[in-house]
Every structure is written in C-alpha cells, then in structure tokens.
Amino acid sequence: MTRPTVSAAGLTLSYRGTRAVDEVTLRLTEGVTGLLGPNGAGKTTLLRILATATVPDNGAFTVLGHDPSTVTGRQDARRVLGYLPQNPGFHPDFTAFEFVDYVAVLKELTDRRTRHAEARRVLDAVGLADVRGKRIRKLSGGMKQRVALAAALVGDPGFLVLDEPTVGLDPEQRMRFRELIAEAGEGRTVLLSTHQTEDVAMLCHRVVVMDQGRVRFDGTPAELTAVADGRVWRSAERQPGARAGWRTGTGEFRNVGDPPEGARLVEPTLEDGYLLALGGDPVAGVAA
C-alpha cells in the first residue's frame, strides 16, 4: 500500500453547536483526491483544518510527517503545503508577479533572485507568463484563480489543498484549470474540493464524499460509480420511491434509488453513485 502523506484521525469541529466536521478520518496519498459533497457538508471546514488555517476541536493530523498541533509543527507543515481557498482575495493594486512574489516571501523565500525565479516559474506553469506585469484588478476571474493557484504552488509544496477552484469559471477555463490540477497532482498530494462530479471523474484517482460533516464514501471513482450498479433506471413517470429523479431531454425520468421490479435499468454514472452516497449510512466502499 502507498504510504500516506497526510493522515487525519477523528477530526471534529463544531460551529455553534453544529458539527461541521464530525470524526473525520482520512489517509491521503500521492495524486489528486476529490472531495465531493453538497453545500454545508463540511468540505471547506475540513480543507481549512488540513491547510492549518483553522484548528479542530478534536482529533489530530499530520502533513508529510509534521504535526500542526504545535507552533513549530504548524510552521513546518505550512512549509510543505499550498492552499487555494474558496474565495481567494488579492491586493488588487499588485501585479500578478508582485502578488506571487509577496506570497513567496511569506513562504520564507528571502533570496530575491531565487524568489523571482520561483514566481516566474509558477506563473509560467499556470499560463500567466504574458500577463504577469498586469494589475490583478484588471485580470478576469479565471486569471485571478490562476494567480491564486500560482501562489499555492510557490515553493513546490508536497501537499496542495484546493477549495472549489473551478467555481465560476467558464467551460474552457474549467478545462484549462483541470489540466493544471492534473499536472499539479504529479508527484504530490492534492486534495480537491468540488461540486463537479466531472472534475472528479477526469482528475481524481480517489474520491471522498462528505455529507453533514461525515465521510460517506472513500474509494476510487469506479467504486463510487459501482455503488449505483443496478440502482439507476428510466421510467415514463416520476417514481415516488426513488432517492432522486429528474426529467431528461427525452422526456423520460432518470431515477436513482431502489428500483421497482421490472424497472429498465441503465448504466450508472459517477453522479448516480454520489447521489446514493449522500445521506443515510455510509455506503459500501467507505473506509472511514
């Protein structure tokens, strides 16, 4: 088995009496792991904990062998991780280069020549070499996301935490961003939070589904799809017994759940497996 780079056990964090993250246990390995879940599932909170941006009430975790529960451990962990938050903010009067250079200083790259070379490298990596002298306020939303990704990549971190990086991007930008994430996942551990099952299908070797603060599924995308084997069917009418159902372009309903006898079963998708993994008890394949 591949040695985990990030291990977490029993992570719990409550907001005003609600458990946003509830006894989450995870082991992440090299490659891109997708974190799927509805709004309010606790994804961002879990990512903030693993990025050391917030502190859990309970539980412990290590990042590439560093324990962030101590001051020095947290600093050491931060030296090996990159974090792209859900709504990254910038100093709008900085140029893309100046901002990434600033983040490089905050990542303790104090030698000017090394730092500038690193800023150029990461901006090149995200395809912003041509606009690195442009003020951030003048960049498009997709370009700003790429500046934030470049900032997260500074210092070549071994663990990259990406919180919904493709939200608000048009299809072309999303495609470009997926390529960047796939490249970033080579040789490092990437934890990618997303609402998009297509992101997971295209990028991830592993997927974790969260709902109501708990891990509902932990396995490969193929295993998540397999959760829906024999549980997706088409019908002419809405099926009241289905966990989820929606009208398709053909006018028929596609249903997910426990099919009635004689139902016209169809090939499941990752999204079907995801819908079945939400709510209720953890489904087969779950590791937590």
Binding site: R48, R78, L81, Y83, P88
Partner: peptide, 14 residues
C-alpha cells in the same frame, strides 16, 4: 485590512 488574508492564511511567516 488585508483582502488577501485567506489566500495567505497558511504560510509559515506567522
């Protein structure tokens, strides 16, 4: 005031 607070929320410089 720091609009980049969250973007720089996990850096080693305290």
């Amino acid at each position: 005031d720091d609009p980049a607070r969250h973007t720089t929320g996990a850096v080693p410089v305290p």
